[in-house]
């Protein structure tokens, strides 16, 4: 009896293994197709330049980029060497925001990465440039923030810190973690 019994067991075991292998191989193949779909952008633009207006017809911002890829299934747009010109609501001088790359998400939020530079075009602004590696921009509220370390270059000072929040409309800036600010001595004065 037990020979038949062990034979049955062996057959059962064998079939379980073959089933497992077939299942495993087919799962692998399927995944392959899913990844391919996401990577190919729906449309690409080279040396892009576009102006975006608010509902009231006011110029909100312009974006120039070497290359833009749009993935409509994910509602994500990726930019290479983007250069934003951001116009505050009160029509004061705009700010230039550039980086090596940026990703625009559907809720009008942009994440900029690598060599991020925010520059004031207003020559009298006490803050001239902000340098950092990572920065988030909310295009609807014109609020720029970064958890990473930032360096703020002013007319006569250099500021180091992190936790930057700057609102281009109200012109308020805060660093929740301030490390140090160095005010350069006014050289002509001491000559």
């Amino acid at each position: 009896m037990n020979r038949l019994y062990s034979l049955a067991l062996f057959v059962l075991f064998l079939s379980a293994i073959t089933y497992g292998i077939i299942e495993w191989r087919s799962a692998l193949v399927e995944q392959q197709d899913v990844i391919d779909d996401e990577l190919s952008p729906d449309f690409i633009a080279e040396t892009l330049k576009s102006n975006i207006y608010t509902d009231a017809g006011q110029l909100s911002h312009t974006i120039e980029a070497d290359r833009m890829e749009h993935y409509s299934s994910l509602a994500v747009t990726h930019f290479e060497l983007p250069n934003y010109t951001l116009h505050p609501k009160d029509n004061s001088e705009p700010w230039q925001l550039s980086a090596n790359e940026a990703t625009l998400y559907k809720d009008n939020r942009v994440v900029l990465n690598h060599r991020v530079r925010l520059k004031a075009t207003d020559i009298n602004s006490i803050v001239e440039e902000i340098h950092c590696k990572y920065l988030e921009l909310d295009l609807t509220t014109n609020i720029i923030s970064s958890e990473q370390t930032v360096m703020v270059l002013g007319k006569d000072f250099t500021m180091y810190g992190s936790g930057l929040i700057i609102d281009l409309n109200t012109k308020q800036m805060t660093l929740t973690e301030h490390v140090r600010t160095i005010y350069k001595e006014n050289h002509e004065q001491s000559l």
Binding site: S125, I126, V127, M159, G161, K171, Q172, M173, T174, L175, T176, E177, H178, V179, R180, T181, I182, Y183
Partner: peptide
């Protein structure tokens, strides 16, 4: 040189 924990600027 100014050191402090927080900083706020009214541009």
């Amino acid at each position: 040189t100014i050191k402090s924990q927080r900083q706020a600027a009214d541009l």
